[in-house]
């Protein structure tokens, strides 16, 4: 026999899974520390690639100057400057990513609260049978 309340509950849950749940359910599959760490590491990799591209573009832009003054250049000093800029940029983006993904995780958990309550209600209705 069909239980109307259960069907309504399942329909609402399915609708949530198809829309908002597509983003929030995968997030909730992680522990908070794992999710934030993973995304901070991915951000660090992305920032590193972007910085490398920018540095290459900057060197290519000034290629003629570098080639002309290659014996006068303080390559060590330049490398230290580039590295320090890289570390500062990486630090800023990592901190930003930490707070951003922590906030995203908390928001996903809050959104899933209602979904989990519905899941419990569904499970209880099956247990009652």
């Amino acid at each position: 026999m069909l239980d109307e309340n259960r069907i309504r509950l399942m329909a609402r849950m399915a609708s949530y899974e198809e829309t908002e749940g597509k983003k929030t359910i995968p997030i909730a599959g992680y522990f908070r520390g794992d999710y934030v760490t993973f995304n901070v590491v991915m951000t660090a990799i992305s920032v590193t690639i972007a910085f490398a591209l920018l540095t290459a573009a900057y060197i290519y832009y000034n290629m003629e100057t570098f080639i002309a003054d290659i014996y006068k250049l303080d390559i060590e000093g330049m490398a230290r400057r580039i590295l320090s800029i890289y570390l500062i940029v990486l630090g800023v983006f990592s901190v930003f990513a930490y707070f951003f993904y922590s906030w995203k995780y908390d928001r996903a958990k809050k959104s899933l609260h209602g979904y989990h309550q519905a899941l419990r209600k569904l499970s209880d209705s099956y247990d009652e049978e």
Binding site: M42, T43, S46, V47, I49, A50, L53, L54, A57, F93
Partner: peptide
């Protein structure tokens, strides 16, 4: 380079 930097730094 412009597209890649936008994608890596912001749109992720």
């Amino acid at each position: 380079v412009v597209f890649t930097i936008m994608l890596l730094v912001y749109f992720r």
